[in-house]
Design a protein around this nucleic acid. Structure first.
Length: 1051
RNA sequence: GGGCUUGUAGCUCAGUUGGUUAGAGCACUGUGCUGAUAACGCAGGGGUCACAGGUUCGAAUCCUGUCAAGCCCA
């Protein structure tokens, strides 16, 4: 006996019960214990931060993270899934600053870094309970008890070890980074802050002559909007593939030559007649020397020559770009590539340094007109104007921002660009375009990783520097032991955070001065990217675990992680081990609200995941996320869309399940294993089922979530609306024959298999079905569906031609219904005959073989094939463009026309007999083969016919008195069934019927008494007045009147 | 400004190497069926395949450009 199943499903109650069962029996733990020694499938959890509440986008990621480990467990793998928490970084600091009412770093320093960091640490897990609750409720199986935490000393020590490794390979260095900087506030701004402050503003637009070193009266013509950066000029950039020209013109009586991009000549000279002397590609200019405009500062490296860069455009200016590495990011990048000097001319307050003698102490923006005047005086200014463009201002104080070089630490990732790209090519990206697109491009254009942050709460950069300016000896520390040794005391109890680690110092081995830690922290992305190592405190501990858990088979995050975790994992692994750290990755699209807008607090359109979970449960939530859109696409989301899953999918499956259990409990069928069923419906269902197993398994193996889920939906629909619908009577039969057994076994197999296929995606529903269908009958079966084995494809059950035939039968039934509707003949009225036309002999056979199904479904007495001569139909011939177009190319339109001009019936007959059709086009004869044109069948006027392509259904609509009587009986049965239902009878209850009916109806009921009694489980049918204790209904239909009384009996 | 992605019915999505009249589900309307069903069947309305060019006998599909949205970078 199975546990009785209510056809009304309460999803949340069911899920709660399953959650309790999992917890009580420790099923998650058992997925590990029972797979001890099995091959490892490695999953890495990208650590979230727990200082904010989890939202729907977290449910999205966690749903996708969960399904593959579940699948792999069922495939026999061992999957340890360790959780993790990202705990450092600016967002944490900002929360604490808010709490303290701070808005700058000085306030933090005054408050005390120790106290500040203590608060950061405390706030990190503010919402940990929310996270745990949600993770549990959505059934994301991850081990949070042993989760790694990035702020622990062990974790930091592993990160230090990685940095030391980079240091030793000379991959860690100090350089300059260009940051948007507010000279009044004295602080760099984050990109978010910068985007707050863009405004249209008027700046100088100047064209400057740079004299060539060895050609008199010849100049590079260079355009800039920041004259104040000219004193720090070190080079001019040209595009290697752009055409440049030398033009000749008169300037105050002297003939001068100017070099600029060819396409900009007209724009620059504004119609002035100039003579083009010479034309060449930009790459020819490479290395050309010019005389510097200013020589205020000494040069450590060679400078003042032309360099080549792809970033140069010819939209504005002259195609020659002035290079000032300290004050432009492109410029800094060029300086690195070409080993140019970096000239620092501006002080932190935005004024020129004393060495810039003419303008010392002047704010740079105020110096612009002075510099322009000075260049005009020297005859180097070609043109100076004003120019309006969008420029960032400080959102706090409205000062124009400067792009400003700050000292910063870098990881030399650009040196490993090729390795990064090569290894990336071996990763399976879903969706695929990320590999060579977004991520691949990013790697190809890789610049050194700006690692350091001038903040407080994070992993300190383990670099110590000698205080003596002329020594500047630096050391990188790779472990606590090493630090202890250098400091000369045991530091194993030291908190590795600031300010404690800052207090550690020792004597410089070079000069004896004091070695102090540089004050920087490192980028939090370096923390999370180190997790393959640091989660194990590798290499200080757990070397074996690390080996077994590296690299990951699977990771999954949203697309915004391309430059975040995906990159940091990949970069660190490449630089450290020259190996990938993940083999498969699903990159999720972002989640939008129901209107397609981004969810944001300010728009007030955030969906609370708990609202969805409380209303529809976790399975439907998950299922929606898997099936609604391919993973990489952004998706609209609303609670209502999730509710749709319950209606269209969950309940359909649940009702098939409930149907099975209800009747199985009445019948107690014996064996529920399938062998070789004789019934076509069973054979067909098992064939479709195994196709499903095959396809879903393949999709899981390819990380194709859409195709691992959507086909199940389709199958369940067909299971419900065709298999069960057409098999219902087989379960009602009173005997216990083999056909009934076969039906039970088949349906049982389908349900259990579907539950297993569903388990990784809908873990609750799958478990509920499994516990009742499998565990209640077999205590030796695995304790949970999530410990059970994944279904095997049984190829011997797959019969593709059977599947096609059944599809044709369904199609014909559908046309039969359409024909009935056209003829205005309701289904309850039996008709004498339905005749069909089909596409090929196999389908003809299939129709005849399944005639009983078709008869029953359409309520007709006979099913037959339409004769080719076409009693009810006519034909046309439709040329098939695909075949004919490919074969005859541009002759196709003429051939098509010729085919249409033929006598349609004759042409159709030719093709149907398998002979080629001959057409004449312009004196040429073409042979049209039978697979190059389609014969279409059409209804003749006046017949009850429905058609679609080669398929036709035609009904004989004439009614005989016998058919009418049978129709009346069926109408009557319908009334009785309704009465049974409203009297709240059980499906198996037997009844007595009392009927008072008008003459025709009474005659019909007498003629069909057996049918009526069998259908309604009536043990006694009497034409008497109903007794007082009977349920009674009166009705009239088809001109007949009836009064029916119904009474439950014990027989 | 650059890179990547997306744009098909009111909504959510399919649409294969270019090829028949661009499909499905939801929603809506009508109708039928029903002792598993919260369903289901049949039919109907609903489309400038974002827009404009181009290639081709033929374009939702390929190419170029434009527009819109999103993400990342500058």
């Amino acid at each position: 006996m199975f546990k009785p199943v209510n056809s009304k499903l309460n999803v949340t109650e069911m899920e709660d019960a399953v959650l309790k069962m999992w917890k009580k029996r420790e099923i998650f733990k058992k997925t590990l214990d029972q797979r001890e020694g099995a091959p490892e499938y490695v999953f890495y959890e990208g650590p979230p931060t727990a200082n904010g509440r989890p939202g729907v986008h977290h449910v999205l990621a966690r749903a996708f993270k969960d399904m593959f480990p579940r699948y792999k467990i069922m495939r026999g793998y061992r999957v340890s899934r360790r959780g993790g928490w990202d705990t450092h970084g600016l967002p944490v600091e900002i929360e604490v600053e808010k709490k303290l009412g701070f808005n700058n770093k000085q306030q933090i320093e005054e408050y005390g870094v120790a106290k500040f960091n203590e608060m950061c640490k405390d706030s990190v897990f503010t919402y940990i309970k929310d996270w745990e609750k949600l993770t549990d409720r959505i059934a994301f199986w991850v081990d949070l008890e042993t989760a790694y935490v990035t702020y622990t000393n062990d974790y930091i020590e592993s990160v230090w070890w990685i940095l030391k490794n980079f240091w030793e390979k000379d991959l860690l260095f100090k350089g300059y980074k260009i940051v948007p900087y507010c000279p009044r506030c004295g602080t760099p701004l984050s990109s978010h802050e910068v985007s707050l402050g863009y405004e249209d503003t008027s700046d100088p637009s100047v064209f400057v002559r740079f004299p060539l070193a060895d050609s008199p009266d010849t100049y590079f013509l260079v355009w800039t909007t920041t004259p104040w950066t000219l004193p720090s000029n070190v080079a001019i950039a040209a595009h290697p593939d752009v055409d440049y020209v030398t033009v000749e013109r008169k300037n105050e009586g002297v003939t001068e030559k100017l070099i600029l991009a060819k396409s900009l000549v007209e724009k620059v000279f504004r119609g002035e007649e100039v003579k083009i002397m010479d034309s060449f590609k930009g790459k020819k200019l490479k290395g050309a020397k010019y005389s510097p405009l200013y020589t205020f500062l000494p040069l450590e490296k060679s400078a003042h020559y032309v360099v080549l860069g792809d970033f140069v455009t010819v939209e504005d200016g002259t195609g020659l770009v002035h290079q000032s590495p300290a004050y432009g990011a492109d410029d800094m990048e060029m300086a690195k590539q070409n080993d140019l000097p970096v000239l620092l001319t501006v002080q932190p307050d935005g004024t020129f340094i004393p060495e810039i003698t003419p303008w010392r102490g002047v704010f740079v923006k105020d110096a612009d007109p002075l510099i322009i005047q000075e260049l005009q005086a020297r005859g180097l200014m070609f043109r100076a104007e004003q120019y309006t463009h969008s420029y960032p201002f400080c959102w706090r104080c409205h000062t124009p921002l400067l792009y400003y070089a700050r000292e910063s630490w870098f990881v030399r990732t650009s040196e490993k660009r090729e390795e990064l790209t090569r290894l990336n090519k071996t990763i399976n990206w879903v969706p695929e375009h990320i590999k060579d697109g977004r991520f691949g491009r990013w790697l190809e254009n890789n610049v050194d990783w700006a690692l350091s942050r001038e903040r407080y709460w994070g992993t300190p950069l383990p670099v110590w520097e000698c205080a003596n300016d002329s020594c500047k000896h630096r050391e990188c520390v790779g472990s606590v032991a090493e630090l202890s040794e250098k400091a000369g005391r045991d530091l194993s109890e030291l908190d590795l955070h600031r300010p404690y680690v800052d207090e550690i110092s020792w004597k410089c081995e070079k000069c004896g001065d004091e070695m102090n830690r540089v004050k920087d922290l490192i980028d939090v992305w370096f923390d999370s990217g180190s997790m393959p190592y640091a989660q194990w405190h590798y290499p200080f501990e757990n070397q074996e675990q690390f080996k077994a858990q590296y690299p990951a088979d699977y990771i999954c995050e949203a697309v915004d992680q391309t430059r975040g975790w995906f990159y940091s994992l990949h970069a660190i692994s490449t630089l450290l081990n020259d190996q990938v750290s993940f083999k498969n990755v699903i990159c999720l699209g972002l989640i939008l609200d129901g209107e397609g807008r981004k969810m944001s607090k300010s728009a007030g359109n955030i969906v609370n995941p708990w609202d969805v979970l409380d209303a529809h449960g976790a399975d439907a939530f998950r299922w929606y996320l898997y099936t609604a859109t391919p993973p990489g696409q952004e998706r609209r989301f609303s609670s209502d869309l999730v509710g749709e899953v319950i209606r269209s999918f969950t309940l359909t499956l649940w009702n098939v399940y409930s149907f099975f259990v209800t009747y199985a409990n009445l019948d107690n069928p014996q064996a529920l294993t399938v062998t070789a069923p004789a019934n076509d419906l069973d054979r067909w269902l098992l064939s479709e089922l195994n196709v499903l197993v095959r396809d879903v398994t393949k999709a899981y193996d390819e990380y194709d979530v859409t195709n691992a889920t959507r086909p199940i939906e389709k199958f369940v629909e067909t299971l419900s609306t065709w298999y069960v619908r057409r098999s219902r009577r087989r379960f009602w039969k009173n005997d216990s024959g083999s056909d009934k057994q076969s039906a039970y076994s088949t349906l049982y197999t389908a349900l259990v298999t579907v539950a297993k296929l569903l388990a990784p995606a809908m873990p609750f529903l799958a478990e509920e079905l499994y516990q009742n269908l499998v565990r209640s009958a077999d205590e030796t079966a695995p304790e949970s569906i999530h410990l059970a084995a994944w279904p095997q494809v049984m190829d011997e059950f797959i019969d593709e031609s059977l599947n096609r035939e059944m599809a044709a039968v369904m199609k014909l039934v559908s046309l039969g219904h359409a024909a009935r509707q056209k003829a205005n003949r309701k289904v309850r009225q039996p008709l004498a005959e339905a005749a069909f036309s089909v596409g090929n002999p196999a389908e003809r056979a299939a129709l005849l073989k399944n005639a009983d199904i078709v008869q029953d479904e359409l309520n007709v007495k006979r099913v037959r094939l339409l004769d080719a001569a076409g009693e009810a139909v006519s034909h046309t011939v439709k040329p098939l463009p695909k075949q004919l177009g490919q074969k005859y190319g541009n002759q196709f339109p003429a051939i098509q026309k010729a085919i249409f001009a033929l006598d349609a019936e004759a042409a159709a007959a030719t093709l149907l007999s398998g002979k080629p059709l001959e057409v004449q086009v312009g004196g040429e004869t073409f042979q049209i083969l039978s697979d190059e044109a389609e014969v279409k069948t059409h209804a003749k006027e006046g017949f009850a016919v429905a058609e679609d392509g080669a398929y036709v259904a035609a009904l004989v609509t004439a009614l005989t008195p016998e058919l009418i009587a049978e129709g009346l009986a069926r109408e009557f049965v319908r009334r009785v069934q309704d009465l049974r239902k409203s009297a709240d009878l059980d499906v198996a209850d037997r009844i007595e019927l009392f009927v008072e009916a008008s003459a025709n109806l009474k005659a019909a009921l007498e003629a069909h008494a057996d049918y009526v009694q069998a259908e309604t489980l009536t043990t006694r049918l009497s034409f008497e007045a109903p007794p007082a204790d009977a349920s009674v209904v009166e009705d009239a239909f088809e001109g007949e009147k009836v009064k029916v009384g119904l009474r439950k009996t014990n027989k």
